[in-house]
Amino acid sequence: MPVLPPPSASFSSSASPPPRAGVVAALRAAGCVFAEEEAELILAGARTPREIAALVERRVAGFPLEQVLGWAGFHGLRIAVEPGVFVPRRRTEFLVDQAVARSPEASVVVDLCCGSGAVGAALAEALGPVELHAADIDPAAVRCARRNIVPRGGAVHRGDLFDALPGSLRGRVDILAANVPYVPTDEVGLLPPEARDHEPLVALDGGPDGLDILRRVTAEAPTWLAPDGCLLVETSEHQTPQALAVFLEAGLTAHLAVSEEFSAHVVTGTRH
């Protein structure tokens, strides 16, 4: 939900309790396209008038709604989201659906570049009892992911890609979901302010062509996948030919799935 630069007037937390109309007006003035819906979520999530005012003030200042509320809806779940952590995108639900369709009997699942851990949490909910691991290089993401992964029996590790994972997982992973950063470096500045200013650069910047992290993940993935295990990554439409080629070079059978509904492109690689 995009937001424009905040107006000069502030929504002070010391003000009298704001009525619904006042909340909507403040959000609309800040450029929030879905002001009415956001107002309902803020009013439902705050316990006191002071909290309402504080949440509106943060939203008007440009913070992502999910970071303001402390949660994001994802694949039917309420995922905890903390300030400074990548907000899970609805389009990534398509990656979850592809993973479940490809490996419905999966018993070992890894959520690499996990951010909040939304993908891993959704896979655990969809598949039932699994051995679940998530990993990220960013300490804020790891802290947040533990809130979403540990209650589902999983473990969260901090480190650079596969370096974070226990060595005992080599050759055993049925689903390796890697929602890697794929925005080309020169295009990061074109992202909406919510992402550019309030999400970690490490979760957005994919290098000169956006595929640096994808290449690193794909190169190592075959040694971690179980026989018939699959690697799934999200990418943009114009990057898919290169991404498919990278998968093939790594010895994986590559497949592209596209969702018009979510404007999502998922490349899946299977080890045989």
Score class of each variant (00 low, 15 high):
M1Q: 10
V3F: 03
L4A: 14
P7H: 06
F11L: 14
S12R: 14
S13K: 08
S14F: 15
S16F: 01
P18Y: 01
P19V: 07
R20P: 06
V23C: 10
A26L: 11
A29Y: 00
A29H: 04
A29K: 11
A30D: 03
E36N: 10
A39T: 04
A39Y: 09
E40P: 09
E40W: 12
L41D: 13
I42L: 15
P49D: 02
E51Q: 15
I52E: 12
A53L: 08
A54Q: 13
L55T: 01
R59V: 10
P64G: 03
Q67P: 06
V68R: 08
W71L: 06
A72K: 15
H75P: 04
G76Q: 04
L77V: 02
I79T: 07
A80K: 14
P83C: 02
F86K: 04
V87H: 01
V87T: 10
L95F: 02
D97F: 04
Q98K: 15
A101N: 14
E105T: 12
V108M: 10
V109L: 12
V110W: 01
G117F: 11
V119K: 11
G120L: 10
G120P: 03
A122R: 11
L123Y: 07
L123N: 06
A124F: 07
A124V: 06
A124N: 11
E125R: 15
A126W: 03
A126V: 01
L127A: 07
P129C: 09
P129K: 12
V130K: 07
I137F: 03
V142N: 13
R143F: 05
R143K: 13
R147F: 01
P151Q: 11
P151T: 11
R152A: 06
G154L: 09
G154D: 10
H157S: 13
R158W: 00
G159M: 06
D163Y: 01
D163G: 15
A164M: 02
L165T: 08
G167V: 08
L169D: 11
R170E: 10
V173K: 14
D174T: 07
I175T: 05
V180Q: 02
V180I: 09
Y182R: 12
Y182T: 12
Y182I: 14
P184K: 07
D186I: 02
G189L: 01
E194I: 15
A195E: 07
R196C: 01
R196H: 04
D197F: 04
E199Y: 00
P200M: 08
A203C: 04
G206Q: 00
G206V: 05
G207H: 08
G207L: 12
G207I: 10
P208L: 05
T218K: 01
A221P: 05
L225F: 07
L232Q: 11
S236A: 13
E237N: 07
H238V: 15
Q242A: 15
A243P: 09
A245T: 08
A245Q: 14
V246G: 11
L252C: 04
A254N: 03
H255F: 02
H255W: 04
L256H: 09
A257P: 02
E260Y: 02
H265N: 04
H265F: 08
H265M: 00
V266P: 13
G269W: 08
R271K: 15
